[in-house]
Write a protein that binds this DNA or RNA. Structure first.
Length: 429
RNA sequence: GGAGAGGUGGCCGAGCGGUUUAAGGCGCUCCCCUGCUAAGGGAGUAUGCCCUUUAACAGGGUAUCGAGGGUUCGAAUCCCUCCCUCUCCGCCA
């Protein structure tokens, strides 16, 4: 969430952010509501604290009188304290209520986009910054990955659907081996760039989901184990970013960089058609995630570095891709700036998102209560959090096998990968 | 899953209804003393929020002793619920 001080000082900027991100509720002025509720809260609080002060002094005095055995005088004060106490209790409830309502409204205000972010309301208004690599051309009709996967018995979609449901495939033989090699490869690349490997829990509690912003607004994204109030993670971002929840970090230790391989679980309600064909959109998929904790002043430099780190595996695998700068309307609630990496799917002739690289500035950190400070004397401030996929596997697998298909239907892996599998070729001899 | 013990400031650790505005120690910061080193002396050392004030500082108040609720004029201390940690037993990859 945003700082209430920031909203107090910059109401118009926040209103603009709300508008640009398309989170305006028709007609009602969320910023105005927050400010009003905030004033209400502060008034009640001041009032309450005055009474608490009075009550504390009375109690202290009573203690004194009791020690001196002046019971009668004490009794008078006790009677007065009792009435005071009732007023305190009422005011407490009111102040509490005002704070809850303020915070509820505050949670509905999105992060403010960075000034370099283009204003726009549809995906068409995202900026394509560059295209890297050459799209392949074939002297035969290239097949989509699901056809190739079936032909070489790499993935069992139907059986997955039988066992769990659509979007939960089995990977088999060289298909499974390929995925394992990719995970290993991506982690090694991240390690080379100074990201410390982490194996996080695959379930997170509600506090954690709130911390990174999956709750309350993206509730439908996650599966839920109601019985234990846990959520299978939709991305490693959730557990990894929550690692430092409620902690104060030493700024000398920043930046802190982590990478984590995890399966990810997403309900993906409402998707259909070509979007969900084959590996395009799954309910369970593997991903290597990069997460960074940064000083506020360096988070945008870190974002550029993170982008480069996310691009590296695509380059090395020789996959054509493009870099998009997301416009205000197409970026998430919690993000201040976001790039998407899209890989070229040669069999489907379309771009597939494989990474999303974002700076959340202090927005997540404030929810997480993750702070930092330069030395014990100075004030604390909220760290800046960033994350990016490096990378999500299924679409990379799809692009890989489509791009590397041969006229005879066999698949030839790029050398970088073949070093890690014990084969270079799938199919044929 | 069963039985027991326990969660106190950066760390250790006392406190078990009102001389606690959380003892004492360690660590850390600043100052003094000292030719250097060692030792010694003094002061300070949590976080959020509210108010006053400011260019910055600062001051006052309030809440927080795992979390939430209750008893009381007053709770770290008593009661209830939950969470977590440790020990022993059982089960298990």
């Amino acid at each position: 969430m945003l700082s209430i001080d920031f909203i107090r000082d910059n109401p118009e900027r926040v209103r603009k952010a709300l508008h640009d991100k398309g989170h305006e509720d028709a007609g009602d002025d969320l910023v105005g509501q927050v400010l009003t509720l905030d004033e209400e809260r502060r008034e009640k609080l001041t009032n309450l604290q005055d009474l608490q002060h009075e009550s504390n002094e009375a109690s202290e005095r009573i203690g004194e009188l009791m020690r001196q055995n002046k019971k009668d005088e004490a009794q008078d004060l006790i009677d007065r304290s009792k009435t005071l106490k009732q007023r305190i209790s009422t005011l407490e409830d009111e102040a509490d209520d005002a704070e809850k309502r303020r915070d509820a409204a505050l949670l509905r205000i999105p992060n403010v986009p960075h000034e370099s972010v283009p204003v726009g309301h549809s995906p068409d208004e995202n900026e394509t910054l560059r295209e890297e690599g050459e799209k392949p051309s074939f002297d035969f009709e290239p097949q989509p990955h699901w056809a190739l996967a079936e032909r070489h018995d790499l993935i069992a979609f139907e059986r997955g659907a039988k066992v769990t449901g659509a979007g939960f495939p089995f990977y088999l033989g060289k298909g499974a081996r390929l995925q394992r090699a990719l995970v290993d490869y991506f982690l090694d690349l991240a390690d080379e760039r100074g990201y410390r490997e982490m194996q996080p829990p695959l379930f997170a509690n509600a506090d954690s989901a709130r911390g990174t912003g999956q709750l309350p607004d993206k509730e439908d994204l996650m599966y839920e184990i109601g019985r234990d109030e846990l959520f299978p993670i939709p991305t490693a971002e959730v557990p990894v970013t929550n690692f430092f929840r409620d902690e104060i970090l030493d700024e000398d230790d920043l930046p802190l960089k982590f990478c984590a391989y995890t399966p990810c679980f997403r309900r993906e309600a409402g998707s259909y058609g070509k979007d969900v064909r084959g590996l395009n959109r799954l309910h369970q998929f593997d991903k290597v995630e990069l997460v960074r904790f940064e000083r506020p002043e360096s988070s945008y430099d870190a974002l550029e570095e993170l982008l480069a780190d996310a691009e590296r595996p695509l380059r090395q695998l020789g996959l054509p891709y493009r870099v998009l700068l997301m416009c205000t309307g197409d970026m998430g609630f919690t993000q201040a700036k976001k790039y998407d990496l899209e890989v070229w799917s040669a069999g489907q002739e379309r771009w597939l998102e494989v990474s999303s690289v974002s700076n959340f500035t202090s927005y997540q950190a404030r929810r997480l209560n993750a702070r930092c400070r330069s030395d014990p004397e100075s004030d604390t401030r909220f760290v800046h959090t960033l994350n990016g996929s490096g990378l999500a596997l299924p679409r990379v697998v799809a692009a890989l096998i489509e791009q590397n298909q041969q006229a005879d239907g066999t698949l030839v892996l790029p050398d970088a990968l073949a070093e890690r599998t014990d084969f270079k070729r799938i199919g044929g001899r």
